[in-house]
Nucleic acid binder design. Structure first.
Lengths: 192, 192
DNA sequence: CAGCCTAATGCGAAGAAATTGCGTCTGCCG
DNA sequence: CGGCAGACGCAATTTCTTCGCATTAGGCTG
C-alpha cells in the first residue's frame, strides 16, 4: 500500500514524506529518472537512507508513491455542455497525458512499484471518478449515460492497452471512435 | 530489446543464455521471485555475475526476457469448429492464464522490465497472432470475421486492463460478454 | 585445414547501495 | 506535566554493481 500520511500534517513524519517526495520530483528533473537512487534522494531530502528504506521499502515503491500523486487529477472534468463533448474532451486529454513520455513513465512506475497493486487500483479509481463525474452531470441534464464499467472497458482499457503494449501513435480519430463506441452502448450494463 | 540469441544454437553465448534462463526458472520455484538476485542466478547458472550484467543490463531486464518466453503460446489456438466457439475458448484460456498469480507476475515482469517496451510489444504480438489464426480459420469457413484491431480493443484490452489495474475476479460471464461484444461488431474496422 | 580476429566470458578489485542494531528524539495521550 | 510508542539518525556490515584487463571460444578467411 506504500506509505500514506499516517500522522497529522505538521508532524515529523509528514514533513519527512513531503521532503522526500519533493526531492524525488526535483532530482527527476535534474539528473533524470534513471540516475535516481535512494541515497541520492535521501541526501537531497535531508534524511538518512535508512529512513527511506524503512518507510517505503525500496526505490520502486517510493517512485510508485510519487507517480500516483502525479497521476491524480487536479481538477474535475471540464464542462462542455453535453455528454459527448465532455467525454470527448476528457478522453483526448487523458490520452495525451498518459501517452506522453512522462505519462508513460508514471504509469509504469505506479504499476511496477507496488506489490499489492494498490497504486494501480488508485490510478484506475482516478479515471473512474472523473468518468463518474461526467456521467452524473449528464444524468442531471437528462441524458442517457453509459455504464461506468462500459466506459472503462471501451474507452480507458483500449487506450491503456495501446500505451502499455503497443507504443504507437494514438490518433485523435481513434480516440473519437472509442468515444463513439461508448456512446453507442449508452445504458447497456457490463459488470465484472 | 533485451538479449536475443545472437549466435547459432550450440555456441557458447547460446549455452550461457539457456543456462541463465534455466537458473531463473529453477530459482523462481525454489526461493521465490522476491529473493532472486543477479549473483544468485549467476552462481546457479555457472557464470559470473558480470556476464549477466553485461548481457542483460540488470535483473529486471533479465526477468523480462524470461517472462516473455513463458508468455509465448505453445500451440495454435484449438479448433472448435466455429468462430464463436474458438474465440470463446481462447479468451477463457487467455483470461485464466493471465489473471493467475504467476501470469500476473510474468506480465508485470515482461511489461516493466524492458525500457524500450520491446517485451510488451512481443506479448501483444503473441495474442494478436493467436487471434489472427482464429480469424483466418473462420474466414476459410466463410464466416464474417471481426477486425483484428477490434478484437484487441474489445477483448484483450479490457482483460489486461482489469488484470493490471483492477485485480478483481474475471468471471466467465464477463469474458462471454466481451466475446459477444466483439462478434457483434464483426467486420467493423477500428485502426489506430 | 590452419591461423587470425572479433566478441563474449572469467576474474578480481573498487565503489556504491542495501540492510540492520542500537540509541535518541519527536509528538501524541493520559 | 510525564510517560510511551513510533520514527529517525548514525554507523557497521553485508551485498550488489561496475569496471579494467586477461583469456578463450567460435566464426571466418586464405
Amino acid at each position: 500500500m506504500s506509505a500514506r500520511a499516517t500522522t497529522r500534517p505538521g508532524g515529523r513524519s509528514a514533513r519527512v514524506q513531503q521532503s522526500v517526495h519533493q526531492a524525488v520530483r526535483d532530482l527527476e528533473a535534474e539528473v533524470g529518472r534513471g540516475a535516481l537512487t535512494v541515497p541520492l534522494i535521501a541526501a537531497r531530502a535531508g534524511v538518512t537512507p535508512s529512513t527511506v528504506y524503512r518507510r517505503w521499502g525500496d526505490l520502486r515503491e517510493l517512485l510508485s508513491d510519487v507517480a500516483v500523486e502525479r497521476l491524480r487529477p487536479d481538477a474535475p472534468p471540464a464542462d462542455h455542455g453535453g455528454l459527448r463533448a465532455d467525454l470527448e474532451a476528457w478522453t483526448v486529454q487523458f490520452a495525451e497525458e498518459m501517452s506522453s513520455a512522462p505519462g508513460r513513465t508514471y504509469i509504469r512506475d505506479a504499476l511496477l512499484g507496488d506489490p499489492g497493486q494498490g497504486s494501480a487500483v488508485r490510478c484506475s479509481d482516478y479515471a473512474a471518478e472523473q468518468l463518474k463525474a461526467i456521467g452524473v452531470r449528464a444524468a442531471g441534464r437528462g441524458e442517457a449515460v453509459p455504464d461506468l464499467e462500459t466506459l472503462l472497458d471501451v474507452v480507458v482499457a483500449p487506450l491503456m492497452y495501446r500505451i502499455l503494449f503497443r507504443p504507437s501513435e494514438l490518433s485523435q480519430a481513434y480516440v473519437g471512435r472509442l468515444v463513439a463506441a461508448a456512446l453507442g452502448r449508452a445504458g447497456s450494463p457490463s459488470g465484472t
